[in-house]
């Protein structure tokens, strides 16, 4: 096996056992009877990622060093725009799922981004714009195409259990097959580039950065689902025990009307500073 093929085989293995791809939240979705209400919160957080994905490809396409890379990126883009899904682009498919879960895709399009999605999208935009091309390719290539089928494998059984029909979850089932195809094309494209140690490191760095962002994203989505169920839930313990004063201060803060108001104001101010998805994408295109 060539060094490039060997590297890619190891990279694939690393992706498949990565924490971001096998997050405990995804495993909980796979085995627990979550309700449509939980999936609505999930979808509201996840929807912007789907909408933003093509922007990474478009930006990378501009920087692609040769026609082989441009070909792969174009093929994926064509699928994202709706080839193979009856002309419906992927964000339209996802919007159907979001609406079936009780969400409002129009409101999401107009509203500001939630923190987990914003962080994920900004990380990826940075990777495709500012980092070497192969790092960006590592993030949107292996970081997405090789990880998504495994993640969706955890999500789909729960969606069916929650009562969504096959049409409503078409976005997810489509990706099981489509990303396998994309992954295969990608492997061919990457095999040409990953013939030096440096190139391999760049691809790996980008991939792992994407997966790490994915892990933080799932952390955030899980926290949002829990907050939806229990907005005033106890604060979880961390690895170190809290000091008595810390516990007392937390309680005093949580219990005081002023504390709550300050926290609400802080949250809404932070939230208001977040851009809408459209604004973020436009800004990114302008800079790109």
């Amino acid at each position: 096996m060539s060094s490039a093929r060997k590297f890619l085989a190891e990279l694939r293995q690393e992706i498949e056992s990565h924490v971001g791809v096998n997050h405990i939240f995804l495993n909980r979705l796979a085995v627990s009877p979550m309700a449509k209400q939980d999936y609505r919160v999930f979808a509201e957080n996840h929807y912007p990622l789907v909408c933003a994905f093509t922007s990474y490809l478009e930006l990378l396409l501009l920087r692609a060093p040769d026609s082989e890379a441009r070909l792969w990126l174009s093929r994926v883009l064509v699928d994202e725009y709706g080839e193979g899904s009856e002309g419906k682009d992927h964000s339209t498919l996802y919007a159907a799922y979001l609406n079936a879960a009780g969400g409002d895709s129009a409101a999401e399009d107009a509203g500001v981004l939630r923190a987990p999605a914003l962080e994920f999208i900004e990380t990826h935009q940075e990777l495709v714009r500012k980092r070497p091309f192969l790092e960006g390719l590592g993030a949107v290539g292996p970081g997405h195409e090789w990880s998504i089928p495994k993640m969706f494998d955890s999500i789909i059984p729960g969606l069916r259990r929650a009562g969504f029909d096959e049409q409503e979850i078409g976005y997810f089932t489509l990706h099981l097959d489509q990303d396998e195809d994309h992954g295969t094309w990608l492997e061919e494209a990457l095999a040409r580039y990953c013939d030096t140690e440096e190139a391999q490191q760049q691809v790996r760095r980008g991939t792992l950065a994407s997966l790490e962002a994915r892990r933080r994203f799932w952390d955030g989505v899980q926290a949002a689902v829990i907050r939806y169920r229990q907005p005033r839930a106890t604060r979880p313990d961390g690895p170190e025990p809290r000091r008595v004063l810390h516990e007392v201060a937390l309680t005093a803060w949580d219990g005081s009307a002023i504390g709550r108001r300050v926290e609400e104001m802080r949250q809404s101010r932070q939230q208001a500073q977040h851009p809408t998805l459209e604004a973020l994408l436009q800004r990114c295109r302008a800079v790109g």
Binding site: Q230, T234, R235, V244, E247, V248, T251
Partner: peptide, 21 residues
């Protein structure tokens, strides 16, 4: 340990007291 326990329990009771939880 009383302040520690009461601080934690009080936070929990806020959730438990609220029937909508």
């Amino acid at each position: 340990h009383m302040p520690w326990f009461y601080a934690r329990t009080w936070r929990y009771q806020r959730v438990h007291r609220d029937h909508t939880s």
